[in-house]
Design a protein around this nucleic acid. Structure first.
Length: 615
DNA sequence: AACCGGAAC
DNA sequence: GGGTTCCGGTT
């Protein structure tokens, strides 16, 4: 529990009373040959470059593109009577998300108001209907999910050696450290060679960086924040420090990459994006909103203190909630600068676990990684509020079917990318009247074909447990969800178990019904022969393992390798064809969705050789 | 297995 | 500001 402290003057508090240059030491590291030559790009890499890309008014943009409207058209997306997205042209009329459709139209008579797609009774797919009624329809966000994944795919193609983490439907983080490093060494080859007379060997600082022309690269967050008061004398002034660092060069290269990527997305899909480019995720996210829309902002290390200091800290990701409130109350302050005077000790006393993390954030430090997840999500939920409550079993079955249809569509959609996705459990939530919602769950059958019927019947079973079949129920909210979604790829044992037998090649899911039996059997069987690892491979892109047939297993090493190589080639062709179908450029052969850290840099054997390495 | 609460958009 | 979605922790 956080107690509010008496209003002591901050400077009299325990710990530092002054903001000193020491607080920002981390922002001006000496960059050495060891740094640039190191192949381990960690979160402490002083040349780290992270970007956050964010679609402008995404839902509105999706509808605008779908309808083939001019980008300048003022457009809003509505859900029932409220707005869920407002295009930038519409914002010029003073329309905001909090307005009702009626008010918005008053502000802008020629406003285009599009209702989100909905599932409608009797229709299999979501669509745009005339008579939309919250009592009979259920909103569908599928269009936005689909467009979102197209964007991610373009990003992957645009910076193949970068890391990408989809953060939400309209946002993604990119770790550009590796692609930036590649270009840095290309352009300044002298960095790759440690001078013979380097005084401290690899720990010698790099030579001075070249000047940078920022003019085409985006918006530089200025060294002095606008409207900031002049600072006390005892603070170190960063305004005079215009020394460019190699990290700035890295940022500028990152900015080039992001600019290219944004252009590509606009060219292929018509969406404009805003981006932030900085040394870590937190700052990239924060500075992305420096200028919007259709713009990218660059935050150099030197500009961090003046940018951060006047910033209301509750704007910072994860400080927008209770923790931020608690901090504001505890110290009766609102900006980052205000909190710099609080010592780490003091913060730890009051905020325990979160203290170090917050303390570092305030100083522009954030070690969190950009990590792409193979399974994009761990659960999937469809929910419906019912202004007109369900009273009969029939009604209940109807809505469960609607929710089931949505889940089926979404899961099967997701399986196009990752075919081995498997939801372990299904959960039904129901709220009766004003009571809090209750839930029931059950194991979800492992089937390749996840149909509406399978989901609906599982849902109905749970409904009976949860609501019963009384004639006079009064349900105001229903939610149906998959949880525990995983790829069958997790864990080497499960793979071995899964593919141990028979002709799994090309259709591993078909026989995956026996997954659990297989798994337990293999564990009691004991160790598999090592050769097994020469008889299959896992596709980088879809995570499926492909294995030779049983009758191929006692072929010679050479024959097996050829068979595997053929299998692999066929599968790559499949991806190639599907990429084209999807309207995106095919990904480079062998390009991978695995973390770059695990990716070979030419060291990994290729083709057939891959299957004859040491094992 | 059921429930709860936090957070983001 | 509310609805939707996701996540992690607790019992």
């Amino acid at each position: 529990m956080i107690q509010s402290s008496p209003s002591k003057p901050i400077s009299a508090r325990k710990g530092k009373g002054k903001i000193t240059n020491h607080d920002y030491d981390d922002l001006r590291p000496t960059i050495t040959y060891r740094h640039i030559l190191s192949q381990n790009l960690g979160v402490r890499d002083p040349l780290r470059v992270i970007a956050l890309c964010d679609s402008d008014a995404f839902y509105a943009a999706c509808e605008r593109v779908r309808l083939g409207l001019d980008p300048s058209a003022p457009l809003v997306v509505q859900q029932w009577e409220s707005l869920i997205a407002v295009s930038y042209p519409a914002r010029k009329y003073g329309i905001s998300r909090m307005d009702k459709v009626k008010d918005a139209k008053k502000k802008c008579p020629n406003l285009v108001a599009v209702h989100v797609a909905t599932y409608k009774e009797g229709e299999k797919e979501p669509g745009y209907w005339e008579d939309i009624d919250t009592r009979t329809h259920k909103v569908s966000l599928d269009l936005y999910r689909r467009e979102s994944s197209k964007i991610i795919n373009i990003m992957k193609q645009s910076v193949p050696s970068g890391e990408i983490e989809k953060a939400s439907t309209d946002e993604a983080f990119l770790d550009l450290s590796r692609p930036v490093r590649e270009r840095l060494l290309e352009r300044y080859p002298y960095l790759a060679k440690l001078p013979d007379d380097a005084p401290e060997g690899a720990d010698s600082p790099l030579p001075p960086p070249p000047p940078i022309d920022w003019s085409q690269l985006g918006e530089l967050v200025p060294l002095t924040a606008q409207g900031e008061e002049s600072k006390p004398q005892d603070e170190i002034s960063y305004e005079n420090d215009h020394l460019t660092s190699w990290h700035d060069v890295a940022l500028s290269i990152g900015a080039e990459l992001v600019a290219k990527l944004r252009e590509e997305i606009f060219r292929q899909l018509g969406y404009t994006m805003s981006a932030g480019i900085a040394r870590n995720k937190f700052l990239a996210k924060l500075c992305a909103s420096y200028k919007k829309p259709n713009s990218q902002s660059i935050l150099r290390n030197n500009a961090i203190p003046s940018y951060l200091r006047p910033m209301p800290f509750q704007k910072i990701r994860f400080l927008g909630g209770k923790l931020g409130d608690a901090l504001a109350k505890e110290y009766d302050v609102s900006t980052v600068g205000d909190l710099l005077t609080v010592s780490l000790d003091e913060m730890q006393n009051k905020f325990g676990e979160n203290a170090v993390w917050v303390y570092e954030l305030l100083r522009g430090i954030d070690a969190s990684e950009v990590k792409e997840r193979t399974a994009l999500f761990k659960s999937m939920l469809a929910s419906k509020n019912l202004p007109k409550p369900i009273t009969t079993l029939d009604d209940g079955q109807h809505w469960i079917r609607v929710l089931a249809a949505e889940l089926a569509l979404r899961l099967n959609d997701a399986r196009e990318e990752v075919p081995t996705l498997w939801p372990k459990t299904i959960v039904l939530h129901a709220r009766k009247g004003y009571e809090t919602s209750r839930s029931k769950q059950a194991a979800f059958p492992f089937t390749k074909d996840v149909s509406v019927d399978v989901i609906a019947s599982a849902g109905n079973k749970l409904w009976k447990e949860l609501v019963g079949d009384a004639t006079n129920v009064n349900v105001t909210n229903v939610q149906l969800a998959f949880t525990g979604i995983e790829t069958t790829e997790t864990g080497q044992q499960s793979i071995d178990a899964f593919f141990k037998t028979k002709d799994v090649q090309r259709q591993p899911l078909k026989r995956s019904r026996d997954y659990n039996e297989e798994l337990s059997r293999s564990e009691s069987d004991g160790r598999e022969k090592k050769e097994r690892s020469w008889t299959s491979f896992v596709c980088d892109r879809c995570q499926i393992r492909f294995a030779l047939r049983d009758d191929q297993l006692d072929w010679s090493d050479d024959e097996r390798a050829r068979a595997l190589a053929t299998l692999q080639q066929e599968h790559q062709d499949f991806h190639f064809a599907r990429d084209l179908e999807n309207g995106s450029l095919p990904q480079k052969t062998g390009s991978s969705s695995r973390p770059a850290s695990k990716r070979g840099r030419g060291a990994e054997p290729r083709g057939i050789a891959k299957f004859f390495g040491k094992k």
